[in-house]
């Protein structure tokens, strides 16, 4: 189950700390492979910095990376960055827990019971076709610009990817395995926990990754339109004072948070899908 060989192919945040004892030896080849995905971003940043310094690009439209770094440092020192990031992250994950939890529960219910699906699915599909961001005016009327508004929107945004993928996952579990489980005397509960849920898990995790994308997207929009804290508020506020560097910083923070959430899901995927041939390292000789 050691995923050593795969580590060279992917570079994930947090992998350094997790490497096994065997992988800890220094190996320039491995290091190079791990850095490769970062080569292009680094080159781009250098070009960008040069373009700003030489005046090729107006600093008001796009400030140099070094300016953004300074803005980052300032925001970090005065504590506003940490506060805003924490507020945003908290909103995002509360929304994910509510919407994702509901999506998972309903997906499982409708996947297991034809009757529930007949009753609920067409309604849900109808609601799904409403872009959830179109609800913003209504949500502001309902909740004002309080926390509930943002959390509600995020919950709606993550609900559908998780609902649809859970339903799909449960539905596409190999019927032969289900029949085998019945023949071998598994009861309903064991059938769900031992066969159906693990079988649906790859699909559920795909849903989760989509949901994380929707989660940040929804939050950015919601915070940009109506908020008094959070990264979205920070950037909108900076725009009013033409602080392009802070606006850019906000965008970068969103990108990092998104990437972090995605990497975390990948880690989970590798752990829980260790059985899956796609996640197994090729066997080393003489194992």
């Amino acid at each position: 189950m050691t995923l050593a060989a795969e580590d060279t192919e992917r570079s994930d945040a947090g992998r350094g700390g997790r490497s096994r004892a065997g992988a800890r030896r220094f190996d320039p080849g491995r290091l190079g492979a791990a850095l490769l995905p970062w080569a292009l971003p680094i080159v781009l940043v250098i070009v960008w910095e040069l373009a700003s310094r030489t005046g090729l690009m107006s600093a008001r439209l796009l400030p140099a990376p070094s300016k953004v770094a300074v803005a980052f440092w300032k925001a970090l020192v005065d504590g506003s960055l940490v506060t805003h990031t924490l507020v945003s992250t908290q909103r995002a994950f509360i929304g994910l827990a509510i919407g994702g939890g509901l999506g998972f529960a309903l997906g499982l219910l409708n996947g297991l019971s034809r009757r529930a699906e007949t009753l609920l699915d067409s309604t849900l599909q109808m609601v799904r076709n409403v872009p959830h961001l179109a609800l913003i005016p209504l949500v502001i009327l309902w909740f004002g610009i309080d926390e509930e508004a943002k959390i509600f929107l995020v919950a709606v945004g993550v609900f559908f990817p998780i609902y649809i993928n859970t339903l799909h996952g449960v539905r596409t579990v190999d019927g032969q395995l289900v029949e085998m489980a019945e023949v071998y005397g598994l009861d309903r509960r064991a059938l769900v926990t031992r066969i159906i849920l693990p079988g649906a898990l790859p699909s559920i995790l795909v849903g989760l990754r989509y949901a994380l994308g929707f989660m940040w997207l929804t939050l950015i929009v919601a915070e940009t339109i109506s908020a008094s804290s959070g990264i979205g508020y920070m950037t909108m506020n900076a725009r009013e004072f033409l602080q392009t560097d802070v606006v850019l910083l906000g965008i970068i923070i969103y990108a990092l948070l998104g990437k972090l959430a995605d990497s975390a899901t990948r880690l989970v995927e590798r752990r829980v899908l260790a059985w899956h041939p796609a996640y197994q390292a090729p066997k080393e000789a003489g194992r």
Binding site: Q176, L177, M180, E182, V183, Y184, L186, R194, W275, H276
Partner: peptide, 27 residues
């Protein structure tokens, strides 16, 4: 289903996310 009867299918029908041991002891 009779508790003393076992059925072997045309395909092995092993549960991919259970180890060999987990499959054998599936019940």
């Amino acid at each position: 289903r009779h508790p003393d009867v076992r059925l072997l299918f045309q395909e092995a029908r092993l549960v991919p996310w259970q180890t060999v041991e987990g499959n054998v002891g599936i019940a």
